[in-house]
Deep mutational scan, measured.
Amino acid sequence: DWEDIVRFLRKLFELGEEVVIGDWHNHHREEIKRLIEWLEKHF
């Protein structure tokens, strides 16, 4: 279910905002944000 995936990604992203998950999070933050925005537009 796409909504569950979007919710999971958003939760992960919000957690990442508070607890910076090292370089991985910083590197992928923009991609995650773009992916969430893309999914919201399409689903």
Rank of each mutant, 00 (worst) to 15 (best):
D1E: 08
D1P: 14
D1H: 11
D1A: 11
W2P: 01
E3V: 10
E3Y: 10
D4T: 10
D4N: 10
D4L: 14
D4E: 07
D4K: 14
D4Y: 13
I5N: 00
I5V: 06
I5Q: 00
I5D: 00
I5G: 01
V6G: 02
V6F: 15
V6Y: 13
V6D: 01
R7V: 02
R7S: 05
R7W: 04
R7E: 07
R7H: 04
R7T: 03
R7G: 03
R7Q: 06
F8K: 03
F8I: 08
F8S: 02
F8G: 01
F8Y: 07
F8Q: 02
L9K: 00
L9G: 00
L9Q: 00
R10N: 03
R10Q: 07
R10Y: 14
R10V: 04
R10K: 08
K11A: 10
K11L: 13
K11S: 05
K11D: 02
K11F: 15
K11M: 13
K11Q: 09
L12Q: 00
F13D: 00
F13V: 03
F13I: 05
E14C: 12
L15M: 06
L15T: 03
L15K: 02
G16I: 15
G16V: 15
G16Q: 05
G16F: 15
G16A: 15
E17T: 14
E17Q: 14
E17H: 13
E17Y: 15
E17I: 15
E17N: 13
E18F: 12
E18T: 11
E18V: 09
E18H: 14
E18R: 11
V19N: 05
V19H: 08
V19E: 04
V19G: 12
V19D: 06
V19A: 07
V20H: 09
V20K: 10
V20F: 13
V20Y: 08
V20D: 08
I21Q: 07
I21H: 12
I21P: 10
I21Y: 02
I21A: 11
G22A: 04
G22V: 05
G22L: 04
W24R: 06
W24F: 09
W24M: 09
W24E: 06
W24I: 09
H25L: 15
H25R: 05
H25A: 09
H25I: 15
N26S: 10
N26R: 08
H27A: 11
H27M: 11
H28K: 05
H28E: 04
H28S: 04
R29G: 08
R29L: 14
R29S: 12
E30H: 09
E30R: 10
E30P: 05
E31R: 10
E31G: 11
I32N: 01
I32V: 05
I32M: 04
I32Y: 09
I32C: 14
K33H: 06
K33M: 12
K33N: 04
K33E: 08
R34W: 11
R34M: 11
R34V: 10
L35V: 06
L35Q: 01
I36S: 02
I36M: 06
I36D: 01
E37K: 08
E37R: 11
E37H: 07
W38E: 05
W38Q: 04
W38L: 06
W38P: 00
L39H: 01
L39F: 09
L39T: 01
L39P: 00
E40Y: 15
E40T: 14
E40V: 14
K41T: 13
K41P: 02
K41G: 08
K41L: 06
H42D: 03
H42G: 04
H42T: 08
F43R: 03
F43K: 03
F43S: 02
F43C: 15
F43H: 03
